[in-house]
Structure formats: C-alpha cells, structure tokens
C-alpha cells in the first residue's frame, strides 16, 4: 500500500488508543479522589508529568487543580495530546485514508470526534464516570469494528502495530503514575494487602478481575508483574509488544524470530528482554527508571518504523537496492 496511507492508518490507530488511555488515566485518578485517598493538587499534578507535557501545562494553566488538569488532558486544543486533539488527528488521518478503511470505521471515528467537539468541561466534571467511560467504550468499539470490518491485510496490520505500540507505552505510564506508591513499602513489596489505590490502578487498565483470578490478593510486585510482563493480558506491556511484533512481521513477511530491518530488530530485542525479566529485577532497578527506559526504546522503535516504511526515499535508491538485492 501507499507509504502515506500506511502512515495514516498507523497514526489513526495510535491516536484513538492514546485518547482511550488518557480517559483511563483520568478515570483512575477521579476514583481515588472520590475515595478521598489523596486529594488536592498533589493528586493531579503527576498526571501531567507522566504525559511529559509539564512545560505546556504551565504555559496554559496556573494551578494543578482537578479542573485545570482535566481541561488540559481532555479539551485543550493547544495540547496536541489532549483527548480532543487525538480524536481530531485520528479523524484527519482517517479522512485521508477513507478508501482503505471500512465505512463503519469512518462513521465511528467521525461520531467519536463530534462527541468530543460538542462536549464541555462541565459534562466531564458533572458526570465524570459516564463521560470518561463513554470515551473508553468508544475506543474499544473502534478497535472491535476495525477487527471485524477491515480485511486483515497490510493496512490492518499497520493499524494493529500502531495500536499495540501505543498501548504498551500507555500501560507503562499508568503504572508510572503510581510508582511513588511503591516507595514507602519498597522493603515489603512481597507482602500482600488489599489497597484501594492498587485496585483502582488495575481497574483503569481493565485488569482488576483478570488479576484477581490469576494472582489473588493485591501486592505491588504482582501488580507490576501483571501489567508489565503478563503474556495473556491484552493491556500488559509484554503482550502488546508481542502483538506489535506479530503485525510487523506480517507486514514484511519476515519469519518470526528473525529480522530484516531496524524496526524488527529493535522490537524483537525489547520483546525478548521483557520475556526474560522478573518483576523483582524491575523493582530493584527502580520502576520509574525501568519505565523511562522502556519509553525511550519504544520511541526508537517508532522511529525505525517510520524510516523503514513511511520515509520519502528517492527512486534511485530503491532501484539500486533492487539491483543489488538488498532487502528494503
């Protein structure tokens, strides 16, 4: 397919996934503030920090109040990562590839955008659970419709690649929002105790029930293991990397376990490394440091994908590669 089209499909999925995850972020924090576990600016500021947009936030808002943070993460048109902006860009990308996505996908993405375009901050503050729940649901709806209405060919694989890379990044960030919870109890990370905060964290990743069945009582180390290293839970980082890798290999036709381009090499290395890591090592090294490193490497994979598939390479280079038989 056209490089430009592949790039748009990839970003369309990433933006939808990003919007959905930001809604999850906000939802978990709201739950906690309702439970009065923590409240006030100290509760909301870390949310901005994990998106990496501190500087922009300070430019646009004075205080880290709940209202300001929700405004910033959900509605601010000047914040390129706000839910509104994500949906706007997802829709612009979808608009430019309408001929390769299904009509149902377009209708859904368009309605999703219109829903945010018409919403006001009061809607989010008055009925937060419903409001962010709707966003979460619309994101999942889109994923489902993509899987059931678009041919599972190259375009779909680019969409899958974008979705899982974004989700891996965001799950790690959700975990990172609460990394400071580990600090006071770093010595007894192995002990089990039910804690409202950890339950809320799991719920924001739709992981609570699945975790319960598999791991039982809540313990920080098990939560870290579950969200980072589980091979079966669809929002766990390792699961996401594995699916992204699958998509990448289906696109290029390269056999699994081998590589033919930088993107496949980097993603394969990261997946393997996580597959052979124990949660205790992550804690010992420091969860925040681990997540930081993970995000840098995910960015590197994104760059390699862009260079391999989307970059505007000159024809002469391509013709030379075909002559010499070096794979593209």
């Amino acid at each position: 397919m056209l490089s430009r089209v592949a790039e748009s499909v990839y970003w369309m999925s990433r933006y939808i996934e990003r919007a959905e995850n930001t809604a999850r972020f906000i939802d978990v924090n709201l739950q906690l503030s309702l439970d009065r576990v923590v409240d006030g600016p100290s509760q909301w500021r870390p949310m901005v920090s994990t998106t990496g947009d501190d500087e922009l936030f300070e430019k646009l808002h004075e205080e880290s109040t709940q209202r300001n943070v929700i405004q910033f993460l959900t509605f601010d048109r000047d914040n390129p990562n706000s839910i509104y902006s994500c949906l706007r860009w997802a829709r612009e990308n979808a608009r430019s590839v309408r001929e390769v996505i299904s009509q149902e996908m377009w209708l859904l993405i368009n309605r999703f955008y219109l829903m945010l375009n018409q919403a006001r901050i009061e809607d989010a503050l008055d009925h937060p659970h419903e409001f962010f729940g709707d966003i979460r649901q619309a994101g999942q709806h889109f994923t489902g419709v993509t899987d059931s209405s678009m041919s599972h060919g190259e375009g779909w694989n680019f969409s899958k690649l974008g979705r899982y890379l974004e989700r891996a990044d965001k799950t790690s960030r959700i975990l990172d929002v609460k990394y400071y919870l580990l600090l006071p109890s770093v010595n007894d990370v192995g002990t089990t105790f039910d804690d409202i905060q950890w339950a809320a964290l799991l719920r924001s990743a739709s992981a609570f029930e699945m975790y319960r069945r598999k791991c039982g009582l809540l313990s920080p180390i098990k939560v870290v293991e579950y969200l980072l290293l589980d091979q079966e839970f669809p929002r766990a980082v390792l699961f996401c990397l594995s699916r992204a890798n699958e998509a990448l290999h289906d696109i290029s036709g390269t056999q699994r376990g081998t590589f033919r381009n930088t993107a496949e090499k980097r993603l394969g290395q990261l997946e393997a490394e996580l597959a052979f890591t124990h949660a205790r090592e992550v804690i010992d090294r420091g969860l925040h440091e681990f997540v930081d490193d993970l995000q840098t490497r995910l960015n590197g994979i994104g760059q390699a994908i862009s260079e391999t598939f989307f970059a505007q390479r000159p024809y002469a280079e391509y013709a030379a590669m075909r002559r010499t038989g070096v794979p593209t």
């Binding site: 397919m1 056209l2 490089s3 430009r4 089209v5 592949a6 001929e99 190259e154 696109i251 598939f309 989307f310 505007q312 390479r313 000159p314 024809y315 002469a316 391509y318 013709a319 075909r322 593209t328």
Partner: peptide, 24 residues
C-alpha cells in the same frame, strides 16, 4: 483504486510510480 496525492508519485524510467511500503 488507490487515492494518490502528487507527493505519492514519482516519474522515473519514463513511467509513473507510486511510493508504497514495498517500494515503487
């Protein structure tokens, strides 16, 4: 059929090619 923009197309060897993920 493919929907292309000018930037997706190149002229080479007396033909018009479009830039795809697998080459031209």
């Amino acid at each position: 059929v493919e929907l292309v923009e000018g930037r997706d197309l190149v002229v080479a060897d007396d033909c018009v090619y479009m830039r795809t993920t697998r080459g031209f």
